[in-house]
């Protein structure tokens, strides 16, 4: 039986060739849209991991503020850090309204702050206060600690200081790491780095104590970036000086603050007694991490040349070990 077709107003007879042509065009359009979506798809979302890649991290330095170093002597950390920051142009030269500031503390060990193996809590609180005063929208602290993170932050007193000063504590969860390769580095290749906090920040301040170190001779501002590294990072102790140079290559900070109020002159990096400390009463504030470490070496009774990582970093063009080149501001506030 022949079917009767009732034509709608839009229906007309379509040639087979025309039908095939339109179908192919529609198919291509769907395939192209799907391919574009697949190409642009980020499986981890913002701040997450996106797989291995060669990557230069954000440059947090403020070139227009210039290269400076201030060496302040005094026993009160709050006073010395204020004097140091003022001497290099004031915190306002570096932190602007709306900045999201990340403070890289040394919270490596779950030990009391009296041992000075970790960043001093009062110093953290004061720097955070100054950042907020300068208009920072947020201040966070991060470190991939060696011991259990919660214990480290709690027992060092950093958690309490952070809470009281409005600093957000970023615990080193797996999802915040990404395997990356730092262009030009010898050792940081396809290695997990605590990347998400760095990507979220607009400014980066490193705060750490001056310490003796059994492998590298000293742990200061450049070594402090070790806490951005994940994985079985102790393997880098085999070539520690090259690795510290790589860390300095990876991170271009806004400011580094090297706390030599009490320097750990023996049995570092953990120490174990206040007997390992020496009152060196010095706060070093700098925009040049190599210069800061060169100045810090003297607090341990060493020369920059005794610490090969300083020379390697200088050779790599990451700063100067000749602090006089920066016309250091030396201040004594007693």
């Amino acid at each position: 039986m022949k079917r009767d077709c009732v034509k709608t107003p839009f229906q007309t007879r379509m040639a087979r060739r025309d039908f095939l042509k339109r179908t192919a065009q529609a198919g291509l359009a769907v395939a192209a849209t799907g391919a574009l979506g697949y190409f642009l798809y980020d499986p981890e979302g913002p701040g997450g991991t996106t797989g291995k890649s060669a990557l230069a991290l954000p440059d947090f330095s403020v070139p227009e503020a210039g290269k400076h170093i201030a060496i302040v002597t005094g026993t009160d950390r709050v006073k010395t850090v204020n004097a140091g920051l003022k001497a290099i142009g004031g915190i306002e030269a570096f932190i602007k309204k709306g900045d999201r500031v990340l403070i890289k503390v040394n919270a490596a060990f779950a030990t009391p702050s009296t041992l000075c193996a970790t960043t001093n809590p009062d110093l953290l609180a004061e720097v955070a206060r100054l950042c907020f005063h300068a208009g920072a929208a947020s201040v966070a602290m991060a470190d991939n600690t060696i011991n259990d993170p919660s214990s480290c932050y709690a027992l060092t007193g950093l958690a309490e200081a952070a809470e009281s000063s409005g600093v957000r504590t970023i615990l080193p969860r797996d999802s915040l790491f990404q395997e990356i390769t730092i262009p030009g580095s010898n050792l940081i290749k396809d290695w997990p780095v605590l990347l998400a906090p760095l990507r979220s920040a607009t400014k980066l301040i490193g705060i750490c104590p001056v310490k003796d170190h059994n492998r590298s001779g000293a742990s200061m501002t450049m070594k402090n970036w070790y806490g951005f590294i994940g994985g079985r990072r102790n393997i880098f102790h085999q070539d520690i000086h090259t690795f510290i140079k790589d860390l300095a290559l990876m991170i271009q900070p806004t400011i580094v603050i090297l706390d030599g109020t009490m320097s750990m002159v023996s049995n570092g990096p953990t120490g174990g007694s206040v007997s390992d400390l020496k009152p060196t009463n010095t706060m070093i504030v700098s925009t040049d991490q190599v210069a800061a470490d060169a100045a810090g070496a003297a607090l341990l009774g060493r020369k920059p040349s005794d610490l090969p990582f300083i020379g390697k970093a200088e050779e790599a063009g990451l700063g100067t070990a000749d602090i006089e080149h920066l016309s250091p501001k030396r201040i004594n506030i007693g």
Binding site: G45, P46, G47, G48, R100, S138, S150, S151, Y153, A154, L155, A159, E160, E163, T169, I170, L171, R173, S175, A196, P197, R199, S200, A201
Partner: peptide, 24 residues
């Protein structure tokens, strides 16, 4: 006008923000 800190914070919340860090 993407603000990664907002998304990172949201993600942190999703992953169960840690309780207040205090002495054991």
């Amino acid at each position: 006008r993407f603000d990664p800190s907002y998304f990172t914070a949201m993600k942190a919340k999703e992953e169960k923000a840690p309780a207040r860090i205090s002495l054991p």
